Simulated assay, not measured.
Amino acid sequence: MDVVVTGGSSPLGRVLVPSLQAAGHQVRQMSRRGAGPGGVRADLATGRDLAAAVRGAEVVVHAASDPRGNPWEVDVAGTRRLVQALDRDRLQHLVYVSIVGVDRVPWNYYRAKYAAEQVLLASGLPVSLVRVTQFHHFIDGMMATARRGPVLIVPMGWSAAPVDVAEAAGFLTEVAAWPAASDVVEFGGPEDLAAADIARAWAAAREPNTRVVATPLPGKLSAAFREGGVLPGPRAARGRRTYAEHLGVRH
């Protein structure tokens, strides 16, 4: 298949592109810079070069996102621009990379991702919405950011199901070859872990002199996390590589 990957230069995109290529697809790696072999330049925030970048695509894996900037411009308006740019007569499948919990967690970024899902469901295109849990490297970054000297403070009662980014890429490669689901498909890590346990494992492996402190966090956002808002449901597909294995912990 002729496949375009948006967000091709992201951590997910960098493993997703070779995964799709290994499955026999011709892959265009779309990003704002368009760098590297097979790279094509296009900007979802402005629509610049978008039509040329996706011309002739049979499958699009839409992984582009802007969590630190303006997700309403990139994730929502950019998805609308992408829908308008695609060749409906040629496109067979659009796979959208979303996040487990976008329909439950009241966070601006998650609301934008959920809105982008609705844009795609209303588009009339053959779509699958793949909600994925947090990648191992994202959890690492969160732990490093939360650490203050010898103390790592985490919210009490929060849980997550960290997932290996390469396994997520492999699952997305499989989904791309399926018929469009026109619905949500979930993919998560093999274990549901308490935030405090994640923090202790990270600290033991990366910063062994760090003390983990779990503290209550008020508000609707925290309540959603305590209620398992970012945990995959019972029908979700699961990866196999644990967070402890990612950290290099031996049992």
Rank of each mutant, 00 (worst) to 15 (best):
V105Q: 03
V105L: 11
P106T: 11
A112K: 02
K113V: 13
A115D: 09
E117M: 10
E117T: 07
V119L: 11
V119S: 10
L120S: 09
S123H: 02
V127T: 05
L129M: 12
L129I: 15
R131I: 08
T133A: 11
F135L: 09
F135T: 07
H136K: 07
M143W: 02
M143T: 05
A144Y: 00
A146T: 01
R147I: 02
R148E: 14
L152A: 08
M156C: 06
W158A: 04
S159K: 15
A161P: 13
A161M: 10
D164K: 07
A166I: 03
A166K: 07
T173D: 03
A180I: 06
S182H: 15
D183W: 03
V185Y: 07
G189N: 11
L193Y: 04
A196V: 15
A201E: 09
W202T: 00
R206T: 15
E207T: 15
N209K: 12
V212L: 05
V212E: 11
P218R: 02
S222M: 03
S222V: 07
A223V: 00
F225D: 01
R226E: 12
E227T: 09
V230K: 05
V230C: 10
L231I: 05
L231G: 11
L231E: 10
P232C: 03
P232M: 09
A236E: 05
A236H: 13
A237M: 14
R238H: 15
G239D: 08
R241K: 15
